[in-house]
Simulated assay, not measured.
Amino acid sequence: MSLKTVNTALTTAGILFIFYIGVSYVLTPETIAPGFGLSHWPLGDGDGFLILKGIRDIVSGLVLTVLLLIGQRRALGWVLLVEALTPIGDMTNVLAHHGSATVAFSVHGLTAALIVITGLLTLRETRKVTAAPIPAMR
């Protein structure tokens, strides 16, 4: 199996996962939000902020989908690395607000690590390989 096939499978799985999370936050924020890791949720109409998170996740997935579909593999690798900042930020937020360290590291930290690995593998796939110069014969 080629590196490109592995990267495509990893990226597609990540896209499907982030779409699932995003749509869940938009449609049923009260059921998915407790798994985020924070111990306290906004009072009142806090669902609006959770829906914003869902929209952000859906857009992140769409950006990756577009790059994958149009074949911009190098850009896809770089965008994956940048998008890893989202779960890193989520992990930091959970830890800073005295949420579950277990969720922070096992959900958000692991997600960030998988995105970084996929991004680095995609960049590795797209690097230019140059052949060594052939020595001149005398």
Score class of each variant (00 low, 15 high):
Val66Glu: 04
Val103Glu: 02
Ser60Asp: 02
Gly61Thr: 03
Leu43Val: 15
Val6Ile: 15
Ile134Lys: 13
Ala33Arg: 13
Val116Asn: 00
His108Tyr: 06
Met137His: 13
Asn7His: 01
Ser39Thr: 14
Ala113Phe: 09
Phe49Ile: 14
Ala113Met: 07
His108Phe: 05
Ile18Lys: 00
Val116Leu: 08
Arg124Asp: 14
Ile58Gln: 06
Pro34Arg: 06
Leu3Lys: 08
Ile18Cys: 01
Val82Ile: 15
Ile58Asn: 06
Ser100Met: 08
Glu30Thr: 11
Asp90Tyr: 02
Met137Asp: 13
Val82Asp: 03
Ser24Gln: 03
Ile117Tyr: 01
Asn7Ala: 03
Gly22Leu: 03
Leu121Met: 15
Ile15His: 02
Leu110Gly: 02
Ala132Gly: 02
Arg124Met: 11
Leu80Met: 13
Ser106Lys: 10
Ala101Asn: 11
Val66Gln: 04
Phe49Lys: 10
Met137Glu: 14
Leu69Arg: 14
Glu125Trp: 07
Met91Asn: 04
Ala132Pro: 01
Leu120Tyr: 01
Val63Leu: 15
Arg56Gly: 07
Ala131Leu: 15
Thr130Tyr: 11
His108Cys: 05
Leu62Gln: 08
Thr102Trp: 12
Leu110Glu: 04
Pro133Tyr: 06
Glu30Cys: 00
Ser2Val: 00
His98Lys: 10
Leu38Gln: 08
Ser106Cys: 11
Tyr20Ser: 13
Val94Trp: 02
Tyr25Glu: 04
Ser106Asn: 13
Gly119Tyr: 02
Leu27Glu: 08
Ala104Ser: 11
Phe19Cys: 01
Trp78Pro: 04
Glu83Arg: 03
Met137Ala: 14
His40Arg: 10
Arg56Asn: 05
Val94Asn: 02
Ser100Val: 08
Thr92Tyr: 12
Thr65Arg: 03
Ile70Asp: 12
Val59Met: 10
Thr111Asn: 11
His98Leu: 10
Val94Cys: 05
Thr65Gly: 08
Leu95Phe: 06
Pro87Leu: 00
Thr126Val: 06
Ala112Thr: 07
Leu43Cys: 06
Pro29Thr: 07
Trp78Ala: 12
Lys4Ile: 09
Ala113Gly: 01
His40Asn: 04
Leu67Ile: 07
Val26Thr: 00
Glu83Asp: 09
Gly109Ser: 05
Arg138Leu: 15
Leu121Lys: 06
Ile134Glu: 15
Ser60Ile: 05
Thr12Tyr: 00
Leu76Arg: 07
His98Asn: 14
Arg127Asp: 11
Ile134Arg: 10
Gly119Trp: 03
Ala136Pro: 10
Pro133Gly: 05
Gly61Asn: 03
Lys128Leu: 14
Pro87Ser: 01
Thr12Pro: 00
Pro34Thr: 09
Leu67His: 08
Gln72Ser: 12
Pro34His: 07
Leu121Gly: 14
Ile134Asn: 10
Ala9Met: 11
Ile18Leu: 01
Ile18Ser: 00
Pro135Gly: 07
Phe105Thr: 09
Leu62Val: 14
Ala84Gly: 03
Thr86Ile: 13
Ala33Tyr: 08
Asp47Gly: 12
Phe49Met: 15
Asp45Tyr: 14
Glu125Phe: 03
Met91Leu: 13
Gly61Ala: 02
Trp41Glu: 12
Arg124Lys: 14
Leu69Asn: 12
Ala132Ser: 10
Val107Leu: 12
Ala101His: 10
Val63Cys: 11
Leu43Ile: 13
Leu64Cys: 08
Ile21Arg: 05
Thr28Pro: 02
His108Arg: 02
Lys53Ile: 13
His98Ala: 11
Ala104Phe: 10
Pro87His: 00
Met137Gln: 13
